[in-house]
Write a protein that binds this DNA or RNA. Structure first.
Lengths: 241, 241
DNA sequence: GGTCAACATTTTGTATACCATACACCTGAT
DNA sequence: ATCAGGTGTATGGTATACAAAATGTTGACC
């Protein structure tokens, strides 16, 4: 056995560009972009230095992130993680509702009883005690619940399309969870969705999902008047440099 | 009045990268990517030469196009315009149905009677003589009809999300239009959709739109068994080099 | 003391040079 | 003649050099 047997190529097709894209995406996902003093400016040279590569793959990765809507490239100014305005968040919730309610239809048609059972377990885990204030844990499961529906639809494109909204929806759901009576309401909604799915009634399932998500929409619409609008954001983003 | 008053500067933020992105996007949109012998390979150097710029902005534009799904970058091989497989097309139709049926709900809520009237005019233009074989013209109006619904929803994100699918859906709709009894069926569907919108019944409108689009889905599912699958596509794309 | 302008610095946009790889073609051996 | 191996070439990936623009700073003048 020669030593070269262990020199298996890292991976047939590995490019710094793709790697950088994933790393940056992950990094942005893990930072709380809605925290007040968050550093939204991404410095190319700094990133390049820290990852010990040149600016070129960084820039190509940033171009992709920009297309995905995660960052905004302002010519001659730099790239900034985009904070969504209240209106944009509302639109994202609408699109999410569209995607997930369609997913629910497909789940009714395609999912096995076993899959539905795992979904039920998700929800049951918290239904016994919806009052408990383990918001962090619950909201994680809550998000996973919705992702599971997208996945069980079997339509890959529904899932990937929703993925683009995911980062922001996740932040929004976490934030909304603690407000008013939403946690309890959410648990009830989830049970209703599961029952609709189990009854194999596409219209009912679709409607349950849509109503659930649109409740989030209405909640945001009513209570989050404080979110910054586009102009203010731009201003504060620049000053934060 | 000095001469400098007319020297308003071209545009404050103009980058070759963005310009290239738009030009390439437009170019890909205008070529019939499903034509049998289409040239799917994009040569960076050739593009750079022809546009008289360097490869850097080309590559950043290509990275964005790849993220949008219009092209596929195979490391060390090149970039190719992506032809969708039958399964991917079916998924796109599903997502389209999800988006447009949600848009219909919003149209019911938000659109003015005048807007609905213009939509009706679109459809009436062809309802008198659905047999006529002016497929090209009709299918253009057909596509515009659906775009109009997305636009009238007032939800920008619904529209832009659908835009990503648009190129392929458009090609598919054109192709399907001539098959079986779809043209007549389409005209009838459109009238039904308009009436549902005018009745301001969100559920009805949503269902009409969804059923209309899903009919396209079923049609493709049943009749387009001939479309290439992923492996064949890759093979033919490479040989076309 | 404040304001504006010129200069320095920082940072992005673009071009180009270089490197690595995939593939084709050529050569030689069986 | 055919196939294996090697070598050359074309092409994409990465690094770096350079240009242009925006911002920060300093200093002079009001």
């Amino acid at each position: 056995m020669s030593i070269s047997d262990n020199l298996r190529p890292i991976s047939v097709s590995f490019t710094l560009k793709d790697h950088t894209f994933q790393v940056l995406r992950e990094a942005i996902l893990n930072m709380d972009i809605y925290a007040p003093g968050a550093n939204l400016k991404l410095d190319e040279r700094q990133l390049a230095e820290r990852m010990a590569i040149s600016r070129t793959p960084i820039r190509e990765a940033l171009a992709r992130l920009a297309q995905e809507g995660l960052v905004e490239i302002i010519p001659r100014r730099g790239v900034f993680v985009t904070r969504k305005t209240r209106e944009e968040i509302l639109e994202m919730v609408v699109v999410w509702a569209a995607l997930e309610s369609m997913a629910a239809r497909l789940v009714v048609r395609n999912a096995t009883d076993e899959e539905l059972a795992t979904l039920r377990n998700f929800a049951l885990r918290h239904s016994s005690d919806p009052e408990r204030a383990e918001f962090k844990e619950y909201s994680d499961d809550n998000i996973r619940f919705h992702q599971a529906i997208l996945e069980m639809s079997g339509c890959e494109l529904l899932r990937t399309t929703a993925d683009g909204l995911f980062l922001h929806i996740q932040a929004v759901r976490r934030r909304a969870m603690g407000e008013s009576d939403r946690a309890r309401r959410s648990v009830a909604d989830h049970m209703e969705i599961i029952e609709a799915l189990e009854s194999r009634d596409a219209d009912l399932a679709s409607r349950s999902v849509r109503k659930h998500t649109m409740r989030l929409h209405d909640h945001i619409h009513k209570t989050w008047s404080g979110l910054k609008h586009a102009e203010e954001q731009k201003a504060s983003a620049l000053e934060a440099k």
